[in-house]
Each structure stands twice: as structure tokens, then as C-alpha cells.
Nucleic acid binder design. Structure first.
Lengths: 184, 184
DNA sequence: TTCCAACTGTTGAGAACTGAACACATTACG
DNA sequence: CGTAATGTGTTCAGTTCTCAACAGTTGGAA
């Protein structure tokens, strides 16, 4: 891709996240973003239709980065390493993900993450021979919701424990239900 | 000016100074600069004919910035405030000016600065009624050289004292000769 | 209310930058 | 020695970004 596009989008996204932290989504204007990013106002519209679209794309990008990080650090999507990888990445980029998960985005980010996690869980569970459509649905959403809940709690409370500790705790909780599902 | 030009030149200059500190002028290639600045190699040639030209323009730019800083902080070019302003600016941008003054640039920067200072001194001295072409020449170059010498010593020894101290010391040295020239 | 300032979203012409290619020079290395 | 690798400086068609202008909307102060 043309490096101008990459630079422009990166600049816009970064300044957008900064502004999100400073004044909240409502009060952000396209002018603000353009000014901060040192970019012509019209250029913003070449990449995003409006600031809602920018928020969407921003969330999408950070979901992408999160998944990419996991793919690099863990072979499977559902093992101890993968979980810890997620927690570590969120910890490292705490400021951004705190914003996306809680204050702003009004659930968009959570929903996207939920869908992705649910998909991964589904793949693991439905691969098992003793699968049953109904009980599977319950299990999948129980596990997914549980995981997202832990994650939100951890971020909302400003990572009160280390990534390793939360991973261990979470795996401990998971064990009784899914001994045969999650590879350690 | 088109903001793309400003951004491009700024990026090139910054990376150039970084590389200057890292490997020295000789070993820098246009490829290095383009890569670091995240810019197409050809674009470098749109702004600078080669790396020597880049060094020239770099020096010129930093001379410009130095003068601009002085203009903002002191009304006259030759008073106590102006001198301190220079020392303060050099101190703040120590890394860059150390490079330009000493290691690289092989005297270009010094010469440019010398000319500018000499010009200022000349204007002050020749405005005095008792001016005399010959003795003026001696005085001008004695004062200019003295000032540049102090400045080089201060930078080469990594600013061994504060900007205020060096200014005071310098003005003290200056006093006997130019009591009637320099306004305090 | 009216007015004013700020923001939005769009357009067009033109400038800056892009990648890719080119021929040529210099350097490193078997 | 040859030759492979790396760097130089230039060109070109195509893309992105810029500035300036536009009409329309919104929100707050007089």
C-alpha cells in the first residue's frame, strides 16, 4: 500500500485516540482531528465518511492488532498461551483498550471481541465428537461471556493484577467445565 | 507552504541528524535517510541535490532557528539578553549543535555563525561616532572570534556551566573593552 | 428571535509524493 | 580478475494530498 495512506491513517487514528482520552467522542470534531494530525480537513474524508466511521475503523484496527499479536505468540487460538497473550497485549496498550472497552465505543468493541471469541470457542467445541447443538450453544456463550467479563473487569479496574496472574486465575476457573476442551 | 513539503523536509532533517550522531556524515547514504524518514528515495532528491546539499541546508535551517529564537527573546542583537538567549537555545538543542559545531560540517556552521555575529558587531561598532575603519576591523574580529571561541569551548566541553553563568562570565570579559558598546 | 461563529461534507485544479524502472558508479568478495 | 551487491541520480505515469472555495447545518450569545 502507498506509504502516504499508511502514514495518514496512522496519524489520524493516533490523534483520534488521544482526543478520545482528552474530551470524549461527543466533543471531538473533524477539525480537531485534522489539526492535530497536521492534515488537511478534506483528507480525513478521503479515508473515513465521518467520525462514527472513524470510530468503527479504529476499533476494527485495534481488534486486528490484538488478533495479530495473538497469532504471533500462540499457535492455537484456545490455549493458555493465547489467553496470556491477550492479557499481555491489553496491558501493554492499556490506555487505548480501556477507552475502546469502556468509556466510548458504546459496546462496539465488546461486541466485536465477543463475536470473535465465540467463534473460536465454537470451533473448539463443535470439533468434539460428543457435540450437541443445544448444550453447545449454552456452553459456548457461558464460556465466552465469562471470558469477556473477566477481561472487562480486569481493564476497568486498571489491571489490578499481572497478566500472568489473571491468566492463571481464569484457567483455574475454566478447568472444571472444560478439562477436555482447552489444551494447556 | 504546502504542509507536505514541511513534513517531508522535517522528517528528512531529523533522521539526517540522528544518522549523523550514529555513524557520521561519511557513512550516511541517501537510502539510509529515505528509509528512516519513511519516504521514497526519489523524494529526497526533490528537496536536496545530494547529501552535501542536505548538510548545508540543515546547517542553514538550524542557524535560522537559532536566530529566530533570539529575535523572539531579545529586542536588540547585542545585549545581555541576546547572549543568554543564544546560550540557552544551544543548551536546549545541545545534541544537534554539538554535531554541527564540532564533529561534522567541517567548519561550515562555525563560518556561518561567525559571519552573522561579525555582521551584528559591525553594525553596533560602526554606528558609534568615533569609528575608524582600521581599528574597527581589529575590534570586530577580536570580539567575534572571542565570542565564537567561548561558545565552542562551552559546547565542546558539554556545557560545563549553566547558560546564565557562561553569559555572565562572558559579559565580564567583554566589559573592559566595550563598556560603551554593549547595552546591559 | 436573529445573528454569528464554528463545523460539516463536497468539489476541482494543481502540487507533492509514490513505486518502478533505468543506466551508471562504487564497493565488497570469491 | 570478474561479479554480485549496493548506492546514485533521473525519469515517468499514476495516486494521494493540498488549498481554497462552496453551500448547508448547528449551537450559543446578543
Amino acid at each position: 500500500m502507498d506509504r502516504r495512506i499508511l502514514k495518514t491513517r496512522q496519524s489520524i487514528m493516533n490523534m483520534f485516540v488521544d482526543l478520545l482520552a482528552e474530551k470524549g467522542f461527543e466533543k471531538i470534531t473533524i477539525n480537531d482531528i485534522a489539526e492535530r494530525a497536521n492534515i488537511n480537513r478534506g483528507t480525513v474524508y478521503l479515508h473515513y465518511v465521518d467520525k462514527f466511521d472513524l470510530l468503527d475503523k479504529c476499533i476494527e484496527t485495534h481488534i486486528e492488532l490484538l488478533l495479530q499479536h495473538c497469532a504471533n505468540n500462540a499457535d492455537n487460538t484456545l490455549n493458555a498461551r493465547a489467553f496470556q497473550s491477550i492479557f499481555e497485549y491489553l496491558e501493554k496498550n492499556f490506555a487505548i483498550y480501556k477507552l475502546l472497552l469502556c468509556n466510548e465505543g458504546s459496546g462496539f468493541f465488546r461486541n466485536r471481541l465477543y463475536a470473535i471469541v465465540a467463534q473460536s470457542v465454537t470451533e473448539v467445541i463443535c470439533a468434539k465428537p460428543e457435540s450437541n447443538a443445544f448444550s453447545n450453544g449454552v456452553t459456548i456463550h457461558f464460556l465466552t461471556s465469562g471470558f469477556i467479563g473477566v477481561l472487562e473487569w480486569w481493564i476497568n479496574n486498571s489491571t489490578p493484577c499481572s497478566a500472568q496472574e489473571i491468566t492463571e486465575q481464569f484457567l483455574l476457573l475454566l478447568e472444571p467445565y472444560t478439562k477436555h476442551l482447552v489444551s494447556r
